[in-house]
């Protein structure tokens, strides 16, 4: 629904020809580092900001294009802000009923009750926003946005204000409730774990551009670029040379079917390497144990990276050997960036 959308502030172009489509009834995550333009995209979809190039369409109607800006109140899009933006002068019931003043009081009350019940906050109907916990406020904000039965619900960094240990629980429960409602949802986040957990579809963004779209596992296993790979977690990048469907890498010769001949990069996740008696030699910088895993910082020539292995006694300065995990049937190669 977004086609080549651009947005610039003064001289800086923050969104550069971004394009993607959202699929009805699915939860899509827009993942990118802070300042990559993802919040701007959200605001452009909501109609709070104009587009400088390209277009945004909803059900084939153009709502945003240069010179075209359908007002936010006429788009039928719900937006839940990072700070929830509950109205401090209205209680929970009136906050949720704010957007449906056109309904008759009976119908309005019924809908509000239904939404409060669906999001398990019926008992808070008469409470004031400032008395609620962060998670409760968020449920109110989502119920308020859904009251207008939007075609699309936008969530801006919805879980960033919640405490670490509560976060996963609240996230899981809330996304389950949202799935029940069946609305199309677009979640903006910078947390790869969050994106991997809740998304049906993933959109990877960096520096104002859309890098990759697809299922989370597909994006994780087959990143289109080093940046895309790093967005979804740590990625180790090693030099490789491809010739005749095989790659010469620090781990030895690996199959590389379909790859073009020439220099390339081998992309490996920290979990994908194991300690072995022989293989790629690296020097241990430090080793730290986290529960059942050990995170080892190693150096290979001038390059430093971290790997995760089973517990092992390792000392700084020690030289160890790494091999690719045997489960990795097809390692991922990327063409060398032209530098």
């Amino acid at each position: 629904m977004l086609r080549d959308v651009s947005r610039r502030y003064a001289a800086r172009e923050v969104v550069k020809k971004a394009g993607f489509a959202l699929h009805p009834g699915r939860i899509t995550c827009l993942l990118g580092p802070s300042g990559c333009g993802k919040s701007t995209i959200l605001r452009m979809i909501a109609g709070l900001e104009p587009v400088d190039g390209g277009s945004i369409t909803i059900h084939h109607d153009v709502v945003s294009a240069p010179g075209v800006l359908v007002a936010p109140e006429q788009r039928g899009i719900g937006l839940v802000f990072q700070d929830n933006a509950l109205f401090p002068h209205l209680n929970v019931r009136d906050n949720v009923g704010f957007g449906i003043q056109s309904l008759k009081p009976d119908a309005r009350n019924a809908l509000v009750q239904e939404l409060l019940a669906r999001f398990h906050i019926g008992h808070l109907a008469a409470e004031w926003p400032h008395t609620l916990s962060g998670g409760e406020q968020q449920r109110v904000a989502i119920a308020r946005a859904l009251a207008r039965k939007p075609v699309l619900l936008l969530l801006d960094e919805p879980f960033s204000n919640l405490d670490g240990h509560l976060r996963a629980t609240i996230r899981q429960a809330l996304m389950a409730d949202l799935r029940d409602v069946g609305t199309t949802v677009l979640v903006v986040t910078h947390d790869p774990e969050e994106a991997m957990t809740i998304a049906d579809d993933l959109i990877l963004m960096a520096d104002g551009r859309v890098l990759q779209t697809g299922a989370p596992s597909e994006c994780y296993d087959n990143p289109v670029s080093l940046t895309a790979a790093q967005l979804l977690g740590e990625a180790i990048c090693l030099p490789a040379h491809i010739k005749d469907q095989f790659a010469d890498t620090p781990f030895g010769v690996l199959p590389a079917p379909g790859q073009t001949d020439g220099n390339a990069l081998l992309i490996v996740r920290p979990k994908d390497v194991i300690l072995a008696d022989e293989g790629m030699p690296v020097t241990v910088l430090s080793a730290r144990r986290f529960g059942r895993e050990t995170v080892v910082a190693v150096a290979r020539d001038a390059e430093e990276f971290a790997i995760q292995t089973r517990p092992a006694e390792l000392a700084a300065g020690q030289v160890i050997h790494l091999q690719l995990h045997p489960d990795i049937a097809l390692p991922r190669f990327l063409p060398c960036p032209p530098d």
Binding site: A71, E73, L86, F87, A145, A147
Partner: peptide
């Protein structure tokens, strides 16, 4: 000042001019 910009934006996405 108690009205944050996002509150006004929220009101707009909730159907107010």
């Amino acid at each position: 000042a108690r009205v944050t910009p996002s509150m006004i934006f929220a009101a707009r996405t909730l159907g107010r001019t």
